[in-house]
Every structure is written in C-alpha cells, then in structure tokens.
Simulated assay, not measured.
Amino acid sequence: MGKRNYTSEQSWPKHPKKTVNELFDVAKLHGWTLIEETNHNAFRLTCPAGCCSFRVFSTGRAQENVLKSKRKDIVRCPHSKFADSTVREVTQSLDNLEQLINATNIQMKLTETEKAFDSAQLDTELDELLSKVEDLEESLTSILKKLPTNRARICTANISEMSQAANDESRNVRSLLKPLSRDRQDVKQCWERLRKLNSQLRSLPS
C-alpha cells in the first residue's frame, strides 16, 4: 500500500497513544502535514515548508520525553503557520508598547509643564507654556487614536499606571516571542525592537 497525506485542514487518524494524539493536535495547529506510511506501520509529520519532519511509529512505546521534544520542535519550527500569526500579534503588541511609552513620556512632560505655570511671571512665559501644553495634548490625542480602546483608557490614568501597562505589554511580547525560532529573520527583528523599547522603558518611573 502507498502513502496517504493528511493536511492540517483534514481529520487525522487516531493513534493508540493519547500522548501521540496530543502531538498530532499541536502539529495540526501549526499547519503541519501527516503522512501515513502504511507499509512501515508509521506516520511522518512534515512542516508547511517540507523542510522539517520526523517519524512517529504506530506501535511500540513512545517515550514521553521524546514526544515532548517533538512538540517543542513543532512549535519552534521557523516554517510554522502558527509562527506567522504569532509574529503578526507580536508586531501589534510592539506597536502598542511603543505608543504606551510615548504616551507616558508625553504625560510626564505635561505634568512638568503644568507645574511651571505656578512660577511663570511674564505673559510671554505663560503663552509659551500654553502653546507647549496644546502641542503635547495634540500628540497624546494622536497616540490614543492608534491604540486599542483598552490601552487608550490607560493613557488617561496616572503616570505610574501607564508605566505599569507598558511593562505588562513588554512581558506579553516576550512570552509570545519565547517559543518562536530565532532562525526567522522577522523574529530576530522583533527581539531587537523589544530590546530597544525595553531600554526606553527602564527610564520610566516604576
């Protein structure tokens, strides 16, 4: 008998071992293909690009640590469809992080400028301060339009809460990036962008 292929969009045959079926579920989620090698009583899993693959036997004892290793291989495969969607999610989160940092910096400048009103004595000084406040508020409004609603609400809170929200966003990006393979150029770029934004983040009040 020949081989039979199952794409990630199709129903896959059930394996006698629950742990192998769990492995199949992970593979399907990441867009892999299952090849049923009936002559050899085995299955082969292949990534979307056909570059990464390994065999799973339908008989015998599959060691748990081996299956865990294979699950990690699937998740970290640079050709995974799931990796593509995760990178898009990471990019959006990085955009949010950048805007949160910018908004926090603007809010800090607004606070400093408003305090300066108390010591201003000349009309020209007051006019300059008012103009600066208007420019800062305009910049903040522009940022709020770019952020999702739940993030935009945070930017109307105090500076400490805004800084905390930025730190939370940074941790979210890191957790999304961690399972992805650094062999991908876009993943490398995301890590580098996160590093630069975290450098800015450290200058904000905790």
Results as ranks from 00 to 15, higher is better:
His79Cys: 04
Ile35Trp: 07
Asp73Tyr: 06
Ile154Gly: 05
Val90Glu: 00
Ser160Thr: 08
Asp135Ala: 09
Pro78Gln: 02
Phe117Cys: 04
Lys3Thr: 00
Ser58Thr: 02
Ala83Tyr: 00
Lys196Ser: 11
Ser175Phe: 00
Gln10Ser: 13
Gln63Ser: 04
Glu64Asn: 05
Ala157His: 10
Asp135Pro: 01
Pro205Val: 08
Lys3Trp: 00
Ser53Thr: 08
Ala120Leu: 04
Leu129His: 14
Met108Phe: 01
Leu122Cys: 03
Glu89Ala: 04
Asn65Ser: 12
Thr124Trp: 12
Glu22Asn: 08
Leu136Met: 10
Ser199Trp: 04
Asp183Asn: 15
Gly50Cys: 03
Phe54Asp: 03
Thr91Leu: 10
Ala27His: 11
Pro179Glu: 01
Leu176Lys: 05
Asn167Ala: 08
Val66Ala: 06
Thr149Leu: 13
Leu201Gln: 09
Glu64Val: 01
Lys3Leu: 02
Ile159Ala: 04
Ser58Val: 05
Leu29Thr: 08
Asp168Pro: 03
Lys14Gln: 10
Thr19Glu: 15
Arg44Asp: 08
Trp32Val: 01
Val20Gly: 10
Ala62Gly: 08
Asp186Ser: 08
Asn21Cys: 14
Leu204Ile: 00
Glu112Leu: 03
Trp32Arg: 09
Glu138Arg: 12
Glu161His: 12
Lys81Met: 04
Gln99Asn: 09
Phe54Trp: 13
Thr156Cys: 14
Val187Thr: 08
Leu129Asp: 09
Ala62Val: 01
Thr111Ile: 15
Arg61Thr: 05
Cys155Met: 11
Glu192Asp: 09
Lys14Pro: 13
Glu64Phe: 01
Ile74Asn: 15
Lys14Ile: 14
Leu197Tyr: 01
Lys145Leu: 13
Asn172Arg: 10
Asn5Ile: 02
Thr104Asn: 05
Gln92Leu: 10
Ala62Tyr: 07
Asn167Pro: 00
Val133Asp: 02
Lys188Ser: 00
Ala165Glu: 06
Leu204Lys: 07
Asp123Glu: 13
Ser170Cys: 07
Lys70Val: 00
Leu29Val: 01
Ser93Pro: 14
Arg44Val: 03
Gln107Cys: 15
Ala42Gln: 12
Pro48Arg: 05
Gln164Pro: 02
Thr149Val: 15
Leu180Gly: 09
Lys17Tyr: 06
Ala49Thr: 12
Asn39Glu: 09
Trp12Pro: 11
Arg76Thr: 13
Lys14Ala: 04
Val20Trp: 14
Gly60Val: 00
Val66Lys: 12
Lys17Ile: 02
Val56Asn: 05
Lys145Tyr: 05
Asp168Tyr: 07
Lys72Pro: 01
Asp123Ser: 14
Ile35Phe: 06
Val90Ile: 06
Asp186Leu: 06
Val133Thr: 07
Lys14Asp: 07
Val187Gly: 07
Glu98Leu: 07
Asn39His: 11
Tyr6Val: 02
Lys188Val: 02
